[in-house]
Design a binder for these strands. Structure first.
Length: 587
RNA sequence: CGGGGAGUAGCUCAGCCUGGUAGAGCGCUGUGCUGGGGGCGCAGAGGUCGCAGGUUCGAAUCCUGUCUUCCCGACCA
């Protein structure tokens, strides 16, 4: 391919509004162009990268029993109403909507559980036709509250979404394991630095859920892990560290002016924050209602709203605003406590309070707190469950302190069970003449998100992208030092033809401009290999450079072809070997 | 939705406080010299200063509104 035909436009300076390095390189290299917030054009080079990534994904899913299909982007509102999720998406304003000439409303696919479940009803009429695993790679639309970080959280993106259908839970288990394996194969092949973590199922619902996280400082998610344990922070569990025990005694109410935070109260009374009772009011948001709940937790701990929400099967749990707090407790935030609380409000406690015998607590009266309060004696102790936000350094399920890192979610696997098949009455009659709803799993890989994550893990701060060979838009950048020198250009084109024949994809840089700027462009764009046709051509030699190994050499034309194509072949072989190792390891 | 930046040439930005003919660097076009790391010279093109309204003899500049965008928070299959 000639560079002049590609539409290359490398910017001289770093874009000012790119917050992370990968997005900055993609913008500066002209790989992507922002059209609107969270919506991008892809250049020819980016399109090639996308195709290579999506091909790898499709291959591995197919290898593990998936069948690629095409599902509609425009999805009728009715089917979303059947599952009850139209209201959820309406509530969060996440759905892009569209209306046809007759006034029928369609949602632009943010995901496709409903549609594929309905589709499967027509495809599967007998248990013998299962398991079935349908997947696609298609555009998805989500009107995110705040698109950000380029392709990492965009409003229009490409996602591989797969859906498995089984007769029973055992079947689902197997389908889930196979997909998990396919995911490992995909990420190993692309040489991602990643980990698999326990995850929250979120609004999509279902029982088991794990996320594949590319480790990166640019990641939005916080992960806690040790050798045999890893979880998203919103899901992580750990042992509550021991708190400082306060002196026991008779409960007494004392004046505590200006003590509306845990730290201030603790300082004022002269105890550790862990000897203070934190009492919080949350709104539990359900599909049809919102109700307040009072949460008790030890003063030095934080409530994990996801755990709280999940415990009650709510859509979300969010801290109540001051007005609600006042309405529910009769006092302002800062002095709320189980002492003096008006009855009838739902309450729950975190396990951090188990066994604690003396606490400083709010008593629903401004400027006052109760000291030496004992759960069970001075107030009724509600049900205790784990609602606590785990922290780095605490002892995890492994029995060792948890470590922390940031991650980009590049894949997510869920067991849905019968949530959608029940709502849509989708299933088959089994051998006992009994109707069985499909047991479904769903699986997502953010194809476009992966593109930026690959750059994140394969670039350097100063020079540019370093595409792995199996992903690179082209493998080799052939640069004639003088573009208008016929011998140099002819030599480059001849070598390009020879390399292409051996599977090494080439860009011949026929653009006007100085050699320096072409070399710079090539490095920013991230081609793994380069050949310079210049002064040594008189001796039948060229300079070859490997950006991935940083090796430079001056060799004959024949040897250059040999070395470059050999490197490409071996890199592809290595990637396939990593993929094959996954099967052997059997994750 | 709350908080904070920003919108002036294709890009990065200056000018705004203190109102008075629209600026720089890079890029682009032409041309000549160059040619192993964004090279040099000469000549050029390119902007309703986001939009609307207001104040004023006069607004990129002051005021009001609005849109867009980036960041933080909330949110995030």
């Amino acid at each position: 391919m000639k560079a002049s035909q590609i539409g290359i436009q490398v910017m001289r300076e770093m874009p000012s509004d790119a917050d992370d390095i990968a997005q900055a390189w993609l913008l500066r290299g002209g790989y992507i162009h922002r059209h609107a917030a969270g919506i991008f054009c892809f250049s020819g080079l980016m399109y090639r990268v996308e195709e290579k990534v999506s091909k790898i994904i499709s291959e591995e899913i197919t290898r593990n029993g998936g069948m690629q299909v095409r599902l509609p982007i425009l999805q009728s509102a009715e089917i979303w109403q059947q599952s009850g999720r139209w209201a959820v998406y309406e509530h969060e304003k996440l759905m892009f909507k569209s209306e046809d000439r007759k006034g029928r409303i369609f949602g632009m696919s943010p995901t496709a559980e409903e549609v594929v479940c309905d589709f499967a009803k027509h495809l599967i009429r007998s248990p013998a036709q299962m398991p079935l695993n349908l997947f696609q790679q298609n555009l998805k639309f989500r009107d995110e509250l705040r698109p950000r970080s380029g392709l990492l959280r965009s409003r229009e993106f490409i996602m591989m979404d797969a859906y498995s259908f089984d007769l029973d839970n055992d079947g689902l288990d197997l389908s889930y394991r196979k997909m998990r394996q396919a995911y490992h194969a995909v990420y190993k092949k692309m040489a991602f630095d990643y980990m698999i973590v326990q995850a929250d199922s979120g609004a999509i619902g279902g029982s088991a859920s794990e996320e594949f996280m590319a480790t990166s400082e640019a990641g939005e998610d916080t992960l806690l892990y040790s050798e045999n344990y890893a979880a998203n922070l919103e899901r992580a569990v750990s042992q509550t560290p021991a708190g400082e025990k306060a002196e026991d005694g008779e409960m007494k109410i004392i004046e505590t002016p200006d003590s509306e935070t845990i730290v201030k109260v603790a300082d004022f009374v002269g105890v550790a924050p862990s000897a203070v009772l934190k009492t919080l009011v949350f709104d539990l948001v359900y599909q049809d209602k919102t109700e307040p709940i009072i949460v008790l937790i030890r003063g030095d701990c934080d409530v994990n709203a996801v755990k709280l929400s999940n415990h009650f099967g709510a859509i979300a749990a969010q801290p109540s605003d001051a007005d609600t707090v006042h309405k529910v407790t009769g006092c302002a935030p800062g002095y709320v406590g189980p002492i003096g609380l008006k009855p009838g409000v739902k309450m729950i406690a975190d396990t951090s309070l188990e066994g604690v015998t003396s606490l400083v607590s709010g008593c629903c009266e401004a400027g006052k707190h109760a000291v030496h309060t004992m759960p069970g004696r001075d107030f009724d102790m509600p049900e205790t469950v784990d609602l606590r936000m785990a922290r780095v350094g605490e002892i995890g399920p492994d029995g060792v302190p948890l470590l922390q890192c940031k991650g980009i979610e590049i894949g997510h696997v869920f067991k849905l069970g019968t949530k959608y098949s029940e709502a849509l009455s989708a299933g088959v009659t089994d051998s006992n003449q009994k109707f069985q709803n499909f047991h479904m799993g769903c699986y997502g890989i953010g194809t476009t998100r992966i593109l930026q994550t690959l750059v994140d893990q394969n670039c350097d701060q100063d020079t540019g992208i370093k595409w792995p060979v199996i992903i690179a838009p082209y493998h080799a950048h052939l640069v004639p030092v003088k573009a208008d020198n016929p011998e140099m250009m002819a030599a480059a084109e001849k070598m390009a033809a020879e390399l292409e024949a051996r599977g090494c994809e080439c860009v011949v840089d026929d653009r006007k401009g100085s050699m320096g700027s072409k070399l710079k462009d090539g490095e920013i764009l991230g081609f793994p290999l380069r050949v310079v046709f210049g002064r040594d051509l008189a001796d039948g030699k060229v300079e070859i450079y490997n950006r991935l190994t940083d090796e430079k050499d001056t060799v004959t034309l024949d040897e250059a072809v040999e070395r470059l194509s050999g490197f490409v072949t071996s890199e592809i072989a290595a990637a396939n070997a990593r993929r094959d190792a996954v099967v052997a390891e059997s994750f």
